[in-house]
Simulated scan of single mutants.
Amino acid sequence: MTTTAVLGLSGCASHKPVLYAHGGGMPPGGERAVAACTQQAHNAGLDYSKGHIGRSAVENGAVGGAGGAAAGAIYGNAARGAAAGAAGGVAAGLVRDIFHHDGGPAPAYRAYVDRCLRERGYQPVGWH
């Protein structure tokens, strides 16, 4: 794959690693290392955004189910309340994930790229 194609793939992501450099700026070879590590993550089957959508839906489903069970117990049918609460929680979580995704990388993708950069001698300090 050409350097242009690699840089094009890494350009699709809105956030990139920030590498520590004495005196600020990008350390020598940093841009190439970032491009190589993001390509390596892609080749390993990792997706920049995979894992974001649906995460809070599951959390909200659990919370909604517990809340619905409590409300259902008060009104005479805990099972129905739990099911309704869980369904509402999942729906709310999906909608929130879709509209409030910060554009940052998925945790596994970020960890992979950060580790790759550290193995190449760079010090990732965050993403922007």
Rank of each mutant, 00 (worst) to 15 (best):
T2Y: 08
T3P: 10
T3N: 11
T3M: 04
T4H: 04
V6H: 09
L7G: 05
S10T: 10
G11K: 12
G11H: 13
G11P: 09
A13Y: 13
A13G: 12
A13W: 08
S14N: 09
K16P: 07
K16C: 09
P17W: 14
V18C: 03
V18Y: 01
L19F: 06
A21G: 04
H22T: 09
H22Y: 14
H22P: 00
G25Y: 15
G25A: 14
G25C: 08
G25P: 05
G25V: 07
M26K: 10
M26N: 14
P27H: 14
E31Y: 00
E31G: 11
V34F: 11
A35Q: 07
A36L: 15
A36E: 15
C37Y: 13
T38D: 05
Q39T: 14
Q40M: 07
Q40R: 12
A41E: 06
H42G: 06
N43D: 15
A44K: 06
Y48V: 00
G51N: 03
H52N: 09
I53H: 01
R55D: 02
R55V: 06
A57Q: 05
E59D: 08
E59H: 07
N60A: 08
A62I: 04
V63A: 08
V63Y: 08
G65D: 00
G65T: 01
A66G: 03
G67N: 04
G68V: 04
A69G: 07
A70K: 00
G72L: 06
G72W: 03
G72S: 01
Y75V: 14
Y75L: 11
G76D: 15
G76Q: 09
A78N: 10
A79E: 03
A79F: 00
R80L: 14
G81N: 05
G81V: 06
A83K: 07
A83V: 11
A83M: 12
A84N: 12
G85N: 01
A86D: 01
A87Y: 01
G88H: 01
G89E: 00
V90M: 04
V90Y: 06
A91C: 07
A91M: 07
L94G: 02
L94W: 00
D97V: 02
I98R: 09
I98D: 02
F99V: 11
F99K: 02
H100E: 10
H100D: 08
G104S: 08
A106S: 11
A106W: 01
A106I: 11
A108F: 02
Y109D: 13
R110N: 07
R110M: 05
R110H: 09
A111M: 13
A111E: 15
Y112H: 15
Y112V: 10
Y112S: 12
V113I: 13
R115H: 14
R120F: 12
R120P: 01
G121H: 14
G121Q: 14
Y122R: 13
P124K: 00
V125D: 01
G126I: 08
G126P: 06
H128N: 02
